[in-house]
Design a protein around this nucleic acid. Structure first.
Lengths: 142, 142
DNA sequence: ACCACCTGTAACCATTGTAGTTACAATCGT
DNA sequence: ACGATTGTAACTACAATGGTTACAGGTGGT
């Protein structure tokens, strides 16, 4: 399966918070841009808040970036909304038969390869910062 | 969510076919090593067959590698068992609001980043060949 | 102090992908 | 012809996801 669209939604939200930092970013307003339900937005913002990427205030609050956008990279966002722990992008098959030479050692072998592939992907995400995304968005608008 | 364990199972199967090329690799035998149901194995072998990685024969058949193991890399295996089409490791959120500057352009921006990350991962998989895996497995057995 | 507005969260539902299982027709080698 | 094995369909159970309704509680303006 693919990686949850929460990741895409999270980036959308953060971009909006950056670009529209003057306005009042209620979950309903954001939901209008993302085109989904406000509760979905609040859920994602909750995750981003726990990860320290946004500040939120209950009541009339609204959310805002907790850090300047050039200090937020997409890997952080990815980890914030992905509830699978790191190192588990690829699922292992459990309990291969230890009596078989293949079953006995496959876990470790696959683990190495899988970790390497996962890291390669994450490094690409880490290279991209939120302000680059925002810049791209605004430029595309011209 | 994580990538289906079919991938791990597929690598297990192919390794077994390589290492045990003398024996008779029935789905039941393989299932014993992987520790799952024979039908699960046949399903994965079916996918590998469609992708041209293994030869299978109905009836008493059994399966065997269609190519030498050093000419099979893990990216091919990945694509064979992954039914999501390439370029969709990351799910986009659909129909963002086109009236919003963010919603209007986010798809394209994310697409670029997502494709880059996905490719980075796939390149790592492409680097690893089946004979490297098999070598690792046998070495680990000592 | 009141009140409209908004957040945070729980609860529920429908959908989807996955893996395991049973069953069985078709096929092959002996 | 027969026993073994494949290929596939059908069904079940389960987990993750995204959408939705509901509501308690906080916040700020007036």
């Amino acid at each position: 399966m693919s990686i949850s669209s929460r990741f895409a939604v999270a980036i959308h939200i953060l971009s909006l918070l950056d670009i529209n930092k003057e306005g009042r970013n209620t979950s309903e307003f954001i939901a209008g841009s993302v085109n989904t339900n406000p509760v979905v937005i609040r859920r994602v913002i909750g995750l981003l808040g726990k990860a320290g990427l946004v500040h939120t205030s209950p009541g009339v609050g609204g959310a805002s970036l907790a850090r300047p956008p050039r200090e937020i990279n997409l890997l952080e966002v990815y980890r914030a909304v992905q509830n699978d722990p790191p190192g588990e992008l690829f699922a292992a098959h459990d309990k291969p038969n230890p009596k078989c030479p293949v079953g006995q050692n496959i876990q470790g072998t696959l683990d190495t390869v899988f970790k390497r592939a996962e890291s390669a992907m994450e490094n690409e995400l880490a290279k991209v910062t939120l302000d680059q995304i925002a810049f791209d968005l605004v430029r595309g608008d011209r």
